[in-house]
Structures are given as structure tokens and as C-alpha cells.
């Protein structure tokens, strides 16, 4: 039950884009087409889960290992969290890109163009930090990262659908393009605020 709760919390209640305003660049940039946004969502899901799976042990066994910290406070490296997570996630994405290019070219063709875009995307980084601050164990943090990226995909697909309708709308010139998208996004966010009491 706890895992279901965490999943819903991450996907809907704390939606990375609509409730926490993260990854807006990718959100606006990749939502002009429904199929593209689904591809982007898939790539984000993949990288987020991978990043969580790597950064969680990294933090708990290297940066803030309680056994080492008991020996001397000098081993408390948790302040290096941001630096290390960014570097490790970026390198990881690169590595995955090499691997896919060689071994799974079809998946690389479908997802490869999105991978450089989401190298340490702020939503992904936020999920890895949340795993630490919310004191999740490894299973919980994996579920949390899946939930967060499903929420990301959901809002991306929602905006892509809205953009399809907005293409033929007769908007005043000053609000055309990105400004109108942010208005649509904030209206979506208002709708998502209704979920805020869903999980106790």
C-alpha cells in the first residue's frame, strides 16, 4: 500500500511539472507533438529510474556511510551531493547512449535524440534529491522515480493535446506561442491542485 501511495504522490499530487514547476524547458520544447512527447516521456522514465538506482546506493554507501561517519566526521560527504549527482547522472546518460548506439540501434533511433536533452534535467535531479530527503529505501525510491516520470509524461501528453487544439485558435499576436503555452500550463496546474489532499 505504501508503494502505491508513493507512486500516486509522485505522479499526481507532487507532479514535477504542474505542481513543482520543474523541467519547464523540456515541457515547452517537446510538447508540440503527441507522439514526440510520449517518446520524451519514455526516455525521461528510463533515465530517472536509472539515476535513482545509481544515486541512492552512491549516497548511502559512499557520501554518507554511517559506519565510516562513526569513525570520523570527515567522511560525511553529503554536502557534495549536488556535484556528485550531476556528474554521475550525466556520465550515466552518456554511457547508456554509447551502449544503445552499439547494441540496440532501433531503440537508439527512437530515444537517442532525447537522451542528450535530458542529461541531468532538473526534474530528474529533483527526484534523486527527494529520494534522499524523504528517507526512502531503495525500493521506495525506485517507485518514486517511476511515479515522478509517469507524472512528467502525463503532463507532457496533456499539453501536447491542448497544443493541437490551440494551433487553429485565433490568438492575439502578443500572446501567441510560448506565452499562451504558459497560460495553458497554469490552467492545467490549477486543475492538478485539486489532487492536493488526495494522499494523507
Amino acid at each position: 500500500m505504501n508503494l502505491v501511495k508513493i507512486f500516486l504522490q509522485a505522479a499526481i499530487v507532487d507532479n514535477a511539472i504542474l505542481m513543482r514547476f520543474l523541467a519547464l524547458c523540456a515541457f515547452i520544447g517537446m510538447s508540440n507533438d503527441v507522439s514526440k512527447s510520449i517518446g520524451m516521456g519514455g526516455a525521461v522514465t528510463f533515465v530517472t529510474v536509472l539515476a535513482s538506482a545509481v544515486t541512492w546506493p552512491l549516497y548511502h554507501y559512499v557520501l554518507a556511510n554511517p559506519k565510516l561517519m562513526a569513525i570520523s566526521p570527515i567522511f560525511d560527504l553529503s554536502f557534495l551531493q549536488i556535484l556528485v549527482f550531476i556528474l554521475v547522472i550525466a556520465a550515466l546518460v552518456q554511457l547508456v547512449e554509447f551502449f544503445l548506439k552499439k547494441n540496440v540501434p532501433s531503440l537508439y533511433a527512437a530515444m537517442g535524440i532525447y537522451l542528450p536533452l535530458i542529461t541531468t534535467n532538473c526534474a530528474i535531479l529533483a527526484v534523486t534529491f527527494d529520494n534522499i530527503t524523504k528517507k526512502y529505501n531503495l525500493a521506495e525510491s525506485l517507485v518514486y522515480s517511476v511515479g515522478a516520470s509517469v507524472g512528467f509524461t502525463l503532463s507532457l501528453v496533456l499539453l501536447a493535446g491542448i497544443r493541437d487544439r490551440m494551433k487553429t485558435a485565433n490568438l492575439p499576436a502578443f500572446i501567441k506561442g510560448t506565452p499562451s503555452l504558459f497560460v495553458a500550463t497554469s490552467l492545467l496546474a490549477v486543475a492538478f491542485m485539486g489532487f492536493s489532499g488526495l494522499i494523507k
Binding site: L83, V84, L87, V88, A91, Q94, L95, F98, F99, K101, K102, N103
Partner: peptide, 18 residues
């Protein structure tokens, strides 16, 4: 960290070179 990551990436780039 930079040294280790650079080394790993370099090795894998050669390993997975297309």
C-alpha cells in the same frame, strides 16, 4: 570522481564504438 568517470567513459566509448 572526474578522473574515474572520464576513464570509464573513455573505455566504454572504445568498447561500444560503432
Amino acid at each position: 570522481l572526474a578522473f574515474v568517470i572520464g576513464l570509464i567513459l573513455g573505455i566504454f566509448k572504445k568498447l561500444f564504438e560503432v
